[in-house]
């Protein structure tokens, strides 16, 4: 089919569409769903007894703030990735936030290891991190998939990776409020490792779900 005839065919079968919300608005919706759920999960799992004093500590508060920043940046990037007119730098926002988060964690780990004479570097097995991240991250991830499936999209792989990272980062933020790591290195390896694992697994699952939902009904127009 020639493109001139295709234009006529497309115009003939046009029907009204619901305009998709802007990425910033979708991010707000996602946070509005995710934050209460994570608060509920934290309450159900039982917050750490020292949670209030922890939040008043600048280093802990900074870690939590950077986890939230990474989560919000990744969510925004996930929604931007699906839009063809969004610039590439927005898609890289979570990379910067994640690098900052990891950099701050690394710096804290180093300074703690010096002050505790290597105590912070002792690594303990903390298998509970993996299911805890999964439990806390599943609801944000489902909410993200629902919002991403709302409309057709581009750059699905990037969107799914960012979406899974967003869910994992906020889950990690909640996890530290109800789960205590024995040492900083344990937190860094097991908790952040769980974040990475959840991000990869969530990305693959999300891609399979969203990829299947992509509309394909106009393929007949390509036939000549």
């Amino acid at each position: 089919m020639s493109n001139e005839r295709l234009i006529t065919a497309l115009a003939d079968e046009l029907s009204p569409v619901y305009r998709a919300p802007a990425p910033a608005r979708l991010t707000m919706w996602w946070l509005a769903v995710t934050v209460p759920i994570l608060a509920l999960v934290t309450l159900m799992m039982g917050p750490r007894p020292d949670v209030l004093s922890l939040l008043l500590r600048p280093d802990f508060a900074l870690d939590e703030a950077l986890a939230v920043l990474t989560g919000v940046a990744a969510a925004y990037a996930a929604f931007c990735a699906g839009r063809p007119d969004q610039p590439g730098w927005k898609l890289l926002l979570p990379v910067g936030a994640m690098a900052l988060w990891l950099g701050v964690l690394g710096r804290q780990c180093m300074s703690l290891s010096v002050s505790t004479q290597g105590g912070a570097l002792r690594l303990h097995v903390d298998v509970m991190c993996v299911p805890a991240i999964a439990v806390a991250g599943i609801a944000p991830a489902v909410a993200m998939v629902v919002l991403l499936r709302h409309s057709p999209m581009f750059r699905t792989a990037h969107a799914c990776l960012c979406a899974a990272l967003a869910a994992a980062a906020l889950a990690e933020c909640a996890l530290r409020l109800f789960h205590r790591a024995d040492s900083f290195a344990t937190m860094l390896v097991w908790q952040m490792g769980s974040v990475a694992l959840f991000t990869l697994a969530g990305s693959l699952v999300g891609r399979a779900i969203i990829g299947r939902a992509q509309p394909n009904g106009l393929a007949s127009h390509v036939e000549s």
Partner: peptide
């Protein structure tokens, strides 16, 4: 061009009227 037109048809909902059309089309 044909793929672009088909993708545009499927993605009409993604356009925000406050933004220019050319970057939207060129992005697709």
């Amino acid at each position: 061009v044909q793929e672009t037109l088909l993708a545009l048809h499927r993605s009409l909902a993604l356009y925000q009227p406050c933004r220019p059309v050319a970057p939207f089309l060129f992005g697709i």
